[in-house]
Computed example of a mutant assay.
Amino acid sequence: MLKLQHISKHFDNKAVLDDIHVEIGTGEIVSLLGPSGSGKTTLLNLILGLTKPDRGSLEFNSVDITRFPMKKRGFNIVFQDYALFPNLNAYDNIVYGLRNKKGIVSEKEVQDYIDFLELRPHLQKRIGELSGGQKQRVALARTLVTKPNILLLDEPLSALDGVIKESIKRRIQSVAREFKLTTIIVTHDPEEALTLSDKILIIHQGKVAQFGTPQQIIHQPDNDFVRRFIIEQLHIKRQNIYNLFGESYV
């Protein structure tokens, strides 16, 4: 569905991305994982269309979209800070992006998204009255009503804790499954990537360190960086990984 072919990007003569080659299938949840400065946010921006690669190409459904502007790609993003309008209530935030997209979605479909994300009790609340999890669901609903071809999420769980974080994880997975919506997530947290994703693209110094399923990452790390990065980052988050992969991997 989405094919990145030999993508490279430089800033100030420094390689931020170097020969990224990966294919993402329809409906897959893929996390872009790596330490700060690894290039994952730049890759997200390239997919979204906010910047262009210096070399390589992007294909979506066999169409070369490398030079397509962001609006023509039909992808959409939920930003880390949600980017909601504080002067509007939850419902008005959800439908805000439809003002210039008449007919893209019916009112019934909007209401279905609202019910799917269990937002009906909160529609008349201002953004300042919502919890972090409720804000995240409003931001998801606002994105979903535009019917994106691909959903992009920038650190969607970083501001959430405990039960709320686990609830949003399940919501993201439910959205991808229910709507067969390819979902690409930027995260610096291996525990989030391993428990949320179908596949994980680990980026190190602008290169692909490994691309595979959570099971492959845990059981068959491709190199010392992957092994070290996963183990070091997970030492305080043992229980979730134990639940997924067993005690020999925590």
Rank of each mutant, 00 (worst) to 15 (best):
residue 1 M to A: 14
residue 2 L to W: 06
residue 2 L to T: 00
residue 3 K to F: 11
residue 3 K to R: 15
residue 4 L to K: 04
residue 4 L to P: 03
residue 8 S to I: 09
residue 9 K to S: 05
residue 10 H to E: 14
residue 10 H to V: 08
residue 10 H to D: 10
residue 12 D to W: 02
residue 12 D to I: 10
residue 13 N to C: 03
residue 13 N to H: 14
residue 15 A to M: 13
residue 16 V to L: 11
residue 16 V to W: 01
residue 17 L to N: 07
residue 19 D to G: 04
residue 20 I to H: 07
residue 22 V to E: 00
residue 23 E to Q: 14
residue 24 I to P: 08
residue 25 G to F: 12
residue 26 T to A: 11
residue 27 G to L: 06
residue 31 S to N: 05
residue 33 L to R: 07
residue 34 G to S: 09
residue 36 S to P: 13
residue 42 T to P: 01
residue 46 L to I: 15
residue 46 L to D: 02
residue 47 I to V: 11
residue 48 L to P: 00
residue 50 L to H: 03
residue 56 G to R: 06
residue 60 F to I: 00
residue 61 N to M: 11
residue 62 S to D: 13
residue 64 D to V: 11
residue 66 T to W: 10
residue 67 R to W: 12
residue 68 F to T: 00
residue 68 F to G: 00
residue 71 K to H: 15
residue 78 V to T: 06
residue 83 A to R: 13
residue 91 Y to L: 15
residue 93 N to P: 09
residue 94 I to T: 09
residue 96 Y to G: 02
residue 99 R to E: 10
residue 101 K to R: 15
residue 105 V to Y: 07
residue 107 E to K: 14
residue 108 K to M: 09
residue 110 V to F: 05
residue 112 D to Y: 08
residue 112 D to H: 11
residue 113 Y to P: 02
residue 117 L to G: 06
residue 119 L to E: 06
residue 119 L to W: 10
residue 121 P to F: 12
residue 123 L to V: 03
residue 126 R to E: 10
residue 126 R to N: 14
residue 130 L to A: 06
residue 131 S to E: 09
residue 131 S to F: 10
residue 132 G to V: 07
residue 133 G to H: 04
residue 138 V to F: 03
residue 139 A to W: 04
residue 139 A to S: 09
residue 142 R to I: 02
residue 145 V to M: 02
residue 145 V to Q: 00
residue 147 K to Q: 11
residue 153 L to M: 10
residue 156 P to W: 04
residue 157 L to P: 04
residue 158 S to E: 09
residue 158 S to W: 09
residue 161 D to E: 08
residue 163 V to F: 13
residue 163 V to D: 11
residue 165 K to H: 05
residue 167 S to F: 11
residue 167 S to C: 08
residue 167 S to R: 12
residue 172 I to H: 01
residue 173 Q to N: 13
residue 174 S to F: 12
residue 176 A to C: 09
residue 179 F to V: 04
residue 182 T to V: 07
residue 183 T to W: 08
residue 190 P to Q: 01
residue 193 A to C: 05
residue 194 L to G: 04
residue 195 T to L: 13
residue 196 L to I: 12
residue 197 S to Q: 03
residue 199 K to T: 11
residue 200 I to P: 01
residue 201 L to Y: 06
residue 201 L to G: 03
residue 202 I to V: 15
residue 202 I to N: 01
residue 205 Q to K: 13
residue 210 Q to E: 09
residue 211 F to C: 09
residue 211 F to S: 06
residue 213 T to P: 04
residue 214 P to R: 02
residue 215 Q to V: 08
residue 216 Q to D: 15
residue 216 Q to G: 02
residue 217 I to H: 01
residue 219 H to R: 12
residue 222 D to F: 11
residue 226 V to G: 01
residue 228 R to Q: 12
residue 230 I to H: 05
residue 231 I to N: 12
residue 233 Q to C: 00
residue 234 L to Y: 05
residue 236 I to K: 15
residue 236 I to N: 12
residue 238 R to S: 13
residue 243 N to P: 00
residue 247 E to V: 04
residue 250 V to C: 14
